[in-house]
Amino acid sequence: MAIITYKNVYLSCAASVAGKLESEGPLGTMFDSTEADSYFAKDSWEQAESEMVRRALNILLSKAKMSDKEVELILGGDLLNQCTATGFAAMTVPSPYLGLYGACSTAAEALMIGSLFVDSGSFSNAIALASSHFCSSERQFRFPLEYGNQRPPMSQTTVTGTGAFLLRNAPAEIQITKALPGRVKEDGITDANNMGAAMTTAAVDTILRFFDESKEYPGDYDVIATGDLGKEGYELASELFVKCGLDLCGKYTDCGMLIYDYNNQDVNSGGSGCGCSACVLATLFTKKLKKREIKKMLLIGTGALLSPKTVLQKQPIPSVAHLVALERV
């Protein structure tokens, strides 16, 4: 269970597309494109999410000044059954496609696997992407959109957003240096409203293993960001790190807390969904890395591997956390 070390993989471009609530949040101006219409001018939310992925792909290609024929591989996924949002979007591009499902950890999983393909030399480039849409997820995992229910304060808001990344073997400003695939953990939490707590142990496990095996110190990194634990999970994870005796030197943050404004947006515990960590990495973190405001960072994508059926069957929520290390060259 060693850490993967990459020698020659660079994150050469990132693109992000987000919805209205995200555009009103603290990262609002950093998205490449935002859309106020939750249907993205399509007929259903499933098609809307696909359209969002397509737009992110197009923006990424235009940023990289590439034609879609030059893309050698697309890896990605979303939260919908059979990953249809990504699959339907990949249909419009002539490149081979690998669909991934790691729930909300998909962005980190796609970066990790995509980097392996590029580092091995089999492919000279690959696109890693992840997306989620509030309405399509709400429909699949919770209640109909117009159903009137009250959400508990520890529940999270699914981010409407896509983050897409172009990985290349040609040197660029940001390098992908290391990765550590996560183990599936289950800590007994059965409440689907408290996914932050359910994913905490997986995140803590991966981070502890990483520092244990790499012999590095949290102080070596400028940012250690979990994917979407939200405020509830972030606080719980912080307490667990103290209990385990790992001092994260104040570098620890969570993408689910960065994407929304708690004071002015009604988001309960914060953001969640594949699009959460993907969008925060594609906007805030790549910007900071490029400007050298941060030099080294860890992204720990956290995913809750539940389905509405397993929740009704009162199964505990298994979760997984994948780690990717990025560095300013």
Partner: peptide, 16 residues
Amino acid sequence: DKNAFVKYATGREKRS
């Protein structure tokens, strides 16, 4: 252990 964690996590979660 698991039971202790569930107790701990649900004990500290914010209530409606």
